[in-house]
Amino acid sequence: MSTSTIDLRQPSTLRAAIISEWTKLRSVRSTMWSLVATSVFTIGLGTLFCWAFINRPHRDLADSFRFDPTSRSLRGVFLAQLAIGVLGVLVMSSEYTTGMIRTSLAAVPRRRVGLVAKTIVLGTASVVVSMISTFAAFFAGQAVLSSGGVNASITDPGVMRAVIGAGAYLTLIALFGLAIGTVVRRTPGAIAALFGIVLIFPLLAQALPDPWNVDVGKLLPFNAGQAMFSVRVDPDLLTPGQGLVVFLTWIAVAFILATGLLTKRDA
C-alpha cells in the first residue's frame, strides 16, 4: 500500500503527464499546421518585407538612417503570432470542445500536474520552432537587404538579443494562449479573448487621453512584446528587459487565474 511519504522509486506523475501531453500534441493535425504556418509567416513575410524595402521606388538616405534592418526582417512575427497563439489556445480548448477533457482528467486527476505538463510540452515545441523561424527570418532578410547595403549583422549590438526576443515573444504568445484557453475553455471565445487582448487593446489604449495612451499602451502585451525585439530604442516602448518582465507578468496572472479555475471548476 502506498503511504503519505514520498517514494522516490515510484515514477512521477509529472513525467508521465509530459510524455502523454507530447503524444497528444503530435497526434493532431492542427499542431503541425499551426507550427508550419508560424514558420512560413515568420520567415516568408520577414523576407518579403525586406525585399519590398530594397525595391521601394523612392528610398532616400533618411529612410535608411531610421531604418532598423533587424526588426524589418522580424516583421513576419506579427502574423505568425496568430498561428502559434491559436495552437496555444487549442492545446487546452480542444479538450473542452471535443469532450476529451473528461477522459484526460480521469487519467490525470491532479489538474495542476496536467496543466504544468501541457505548459512544458507546448513551451518546448514553441520555443524550438519560434527560435529556428526568427533566426532563419533574420538571416534570410539580411541576405536580401545586403544587396542594398542596409543589412545588420548578428554581432551588431542588440541584434542577437532582438532575434532571440522575437522567438521568445512567439513562445510566450503560445503560452498566453494556453492560459486563456484554460480560463475560457471554448475555442472561439478563447481565440477572441487572446487576440482581443493582444491586438485590440493597443488600439483602445491609443484612444486614451495623453499621456495615458503611451503610459498604458506600453504595458500591454503587444507593445511590451514588441519592445523585446526592437534594436533601436523607441521612446514610446519599454526597454527590452522591461518588456519581457511586463509580458511575463501578464502571462503569470493568466496562469494563476487558469490554475485557480481549472482546479475549482467542475469539468
Binding site: V28, R29, T98, M100
Partner: peptide
C-alpha cells in the same frame, strides 16, 4: 464521445 476526433 469524450475524445478528440482528430486523433487516431
Amino acid at each position: 464521445k469524450a475524445l478528440h476526433g482528430g486523433r487516431k
